[in-house]
Simulated assay, not measured.
Amino acid sequence: MMPIHELLNRIRWDAAFAQGRFVLGYYDRVDDRLIEVPLSRVQLTPGDHFAFQVTDADGYTHEVPFHRVKSVRKDGELIWHREH
Results as ranks from 00 to 15, higher is better:
V23Y: 01
Q19R: 15
M2S: 05
E36T: 01
Y60I: 12
T45W: 10
G59R: 08
R10F: 09
S71N: 11
H5T: 11
F66M: 10
Q53T: 09
Q19S: 09
S71Y: 05
Q43T: 14
P3A: 13
H81F: 02
H67G: 01
Y60K: 15
V42K: 05
D31C: 00
D28M: 01
E6Q: 12
T55E: 15
F22M: 08
R41M: 07
A15P: 04
V42C: 09
F66L: 14
Y26C: 00
H81N: 01
I4C: 06
M2C: 06
L24D: 00
D75Y: 06
L24R: 00
R12W: 09
F52C: 02
R82L: 10
D32Q: 13
F66R: 05
R41K: 09
S40R: 10
R33Q: 15
E36K: 00
I4S: 07
A57V: 04
E36N: 04
D56N: 15
R12I: 07
I11A: 14
P46E: 15
G20H: 09
R29C: 15
R41N: 06
H49G: 11
A15W: 14
A51C: 08
R12N: 10
V42G: 03
Q19C: 06
I79F: 13
G20S: 07
F50C: 12
P38V: 01
H84A: 10
A16F: 04
L44V: 09
R73N: 12
Y26R: 00
V54T: 04
S40D: 12
D75R: 08
F17H: 10
P65T: 03
Y60H: 14
R29A: 15
L34Y: 04
H62L: 13
L39S: 03
P3W: 11
Y60R: 14
V37A: 03
Q19W: 10
Y27R: 00
M1V: 10
G76R: 04
G20F: 15
E77H: 06
E36D: 08
A57G: 04
D58R: 13
L78Q: 03
L24G: 00
A51S: 13
V30L: 13
T45P: 05
L39R: 06
G76M: 11
W13V: 10
V37Y: 00
T55G: 05
M1E: 15
H84V: 01
K74E: 05
P65A: 13
I4V: 14
D14C: 03
E6F: 11
E63P: 01
L78A: 02
L44R: 11
W80Q: 07
E63F: 12
